[in-house]
Amino acid sequence: MATLQLKSIRKTYPKADIETLKGIDIEIDSGEFLILVGPSGCGKSTLMNTIAGLESITGGEIKIDGRNVEQVAPKDRDIAMVFQSYALYPNMTVRGNIAFGLEMKKMPKPEIDLEVQRVAEMLQIEQLLDRKPSQLSGGQRQRVAMGRALARRPKLYLFDEPLSNLDAKLRVDMRHQIKRLHQQLGTTIVYVTHDQIEAMTLADRIAVMRDGELQQLGTPADIYNTPSNLFVAGFMGSPSMNFVKGVVEVQEGKSLLALVGDDGARSMLPLPAGMELWQGKEVVMGIRPEHLSEGSDMNHQDTKVTGLIEVLEPTGPDTIAMVRFFNQEVACRLSPDSKVKVGESVTLSIDLQKVVLFDGQTEKRIQLSND
């Protein structure tokens, strides 16, 4: 296990005049599972490669257990990396692939055999040890790639989108396997993915990246419930957070979000206390689909909105409904037993305690005194 410090990491490609990493600051505790998440091209894989030493940095510091490793060769950083392409040696058996790194370290053969057996039992691939990679399924190959990394017992594990080539069921199975391994071994892991479900279920903390910049670093709960800006709010969550734009008005000492439809009709949604100072300014109300419910035991009648159901998507445990009101489409989660139909109107209640508000100009979350 090891700590990892990334201080003001920058990466520029001079020929293309592109700055891929723009001052990344992250500190990872020993035994922590950190996930780098973001859309394609945000710089997460580049950051991973700089940690591994596969790419140099333009500026900043990378420290492993307090040791500056910028000038240290990849093989000497005591890091194991698992790629999405598995990167197995096709001419070797599973046993040979797992043992290869240990053989390079000149470890005695009896110790290698014991370590290979230990890893194989942990990953439940004992019966595959004498097979070649071509005889394995995608999930089995990925477990072998993980086994090769685990056998080395490095200070730090790097996973670069290891599940992206697997089908949906295998992804879930392997996700559980990785989670279980981390709980058993307490290893320090940095994991790159574009899959937010992987990020939410695996991570101790999540680093959300966009265009080479760190947008937010926090626990899965922090990222989901109190996103720092509109990008994070929209990126994390499936379906994503709904955004309702309006202007703040104050009536009889209460703050309201004024919505205006295409026909000029107005509707008012109540806002949390403390929004009086935003009078006359454009704000965006963020509402998670699960915080829009059909019917409610809440007493505040003014939290209800009525809209037209345009799409229904049954998922089993719930039904995702796309509802249009005041020329804005929102997603909500309904009970699988809901009787609503496409083309009908439905009344929804908004849980005001769960809404998140953003500045319409800066797109940053508005922090109220009760946050």
Results as ranks from 00 to 15, higher is better:
residue 116 V to C: 01
residue 145 A to V: 06
residue 137 S to I: 06
residue 106 K to E: 04
residue 140 Q to H: 08
residue 114 L to R: 15
residue 102 L to K: 12
residue 127 Q to T: 10
residue 127 Q to A: 06
residue 131 R to L: 04
residue 111 E to V: 09
residue 99 A to I: 14
residue 98 I to S: 03
residue 96 G to R: 15
residue 107 M to Y: 08
residue 113 D to L: 13
residue 109 K to T: 02
residue 131 R to P: 00
residue 109 K to P: 02
residue 117 Q to P: 03
residue 98 I to W: 13
residue 97 N to D: 04
residue 91 N to H: 15
residue 129 L to R: 15
residue 114 L to M: 12
residue 140 Q to I: 04
residue 126 E to F: 11
residue 135 Q to G: 09
residue 89 Y to L: 10
residue 139 G to A: 06
residue 108 P to E: 09
residue 128 L to M: 12
residue 118 R to M: 01
residue 143 R to G: 00
residue 90 P to M: 07
residue 129 L to M: 10
residue 117 Q to A: 09
residue 104 M to I: 13
residue 132 K to G: 01
residue 112 I to H: 10
residue 144 V to W: 13
residue 89 Y to S: 11
residue 125 I to S: 00
residue 116 V to F: 13
residue 135 Q to E: 08
residue 131 R to K: 15
residue 114 L to D: 14
residue 122 M to V: 13
residue 133 P to S: 03
residue 128 L to S: 07
residue 140 Q to G: 01
residue 118 R to S: 06
residue 129 L to T: 12
residue 93 T to D: 00
residue 102 L to A: 03
residue 103 E to G: 02
residue 122 M to P: 05
residue 130 D to H: 15
residue 115 E to P: 07
residue 106 K to Y: 05
residue 143 R to N: 00
residue 109 K to N: 03
residue 100 F to A: 08
residue 144 V to Q: 10
residue 102 L to D: 02
residue 143 R to L: 05
residue 116 V to D: 04
residue 139 G to S: 11
residue 98 I to P: 01
residue 145 A to H: 02
residue 125 I to L: 06
residue 94 V to L: 12
residue 95 R to I: 01
residue 127 Q to G: 01
residue 141 R to D: 00
residue 110 P to D: 06
residue 134 S to W: 01
residue 88 L to I: 04
residue 103 E to H: 14
residue 97 N to M: 12
residue 143 R to Y: 07
residue 115 E to C: 05
residue 87 A to P: 01
residue 117 Q to M: 09
residue 134 S to H: 14
residue 119 V to Y: 08
residue 143 R to M: 05
residue 105 K to W: 09
residue 110 P to V: 07
residue 138 G to S: 08
residue 140 Q to N: 07
residue 129 L to H: 15
residue 136 L to R: 15
residue 131 R to W: 04
residue 136 L to M: 11
residue 139 G to V: 11
residue 101 G to Y: 13
residue 115 E to G: 04
residue 133 P to N: 11
residue 123 L to R: 11
residue 139 G to H: 10
residue 134 S to E: 03
residue 131 R to N: 06
residue 128 L to F: 07
residue 103 E to I: 09
residue 128 L to N: 07
residue 101 G to Q: 12
residue 101 G to C: 09
residue 102 L to E: 04
residue 138 G to E: 02
residue 101 G to P: 00
residue 112 I to P: 00
residue 134 S to K: 14
residue 145 A to S: 12
residue 96 G to P: 08
residue 100 F to S: 02
residue 110 P to C: 05
residue 130 D to Q: 15
residue 129 L to F: 15
residue 99 A to M: 12
residue 88 L to R: 08
residue 110 P to A: 08
residue 140 Q to K: 14
residue 90 P to S: 08
residue 122 M to I: 10
residue 97 N to F: 09
residue 116 V to G: 02
residue 92 M to P: 04
residue 89 Y to H: 07
residue 141 R to F: 04
residue 131 R to S: 02
residue 101 G to M: 11
residue 114 L to A: 11
residue 86 Y to H: 05
residue 102 L to T: 06
residue 137 S to W: 05
residue 123 L to I: 12
residue 109 K to S: 03
residue 140 Q to C: 08
residue 120 A to F: 13
residue 141 R to G: 04
residue 115 E to S: 10
residue 106 K to G: 02
residue 141 R to E: 00
residue 127 Q to N: 12
residue 86 Y to F: 10
residue 134 S to D: 03
residue 145 A to G: 03
residue 98 I to N: 08
residue 125 I to M: 12
residue 95 R to Y: 15
residue 109 K to D: 02
residue 114 L to E: 15
residue 125 I to G: 00
residue 128 L to D: 03
residue 103 E to P: 02
residue 93 T to V: 06
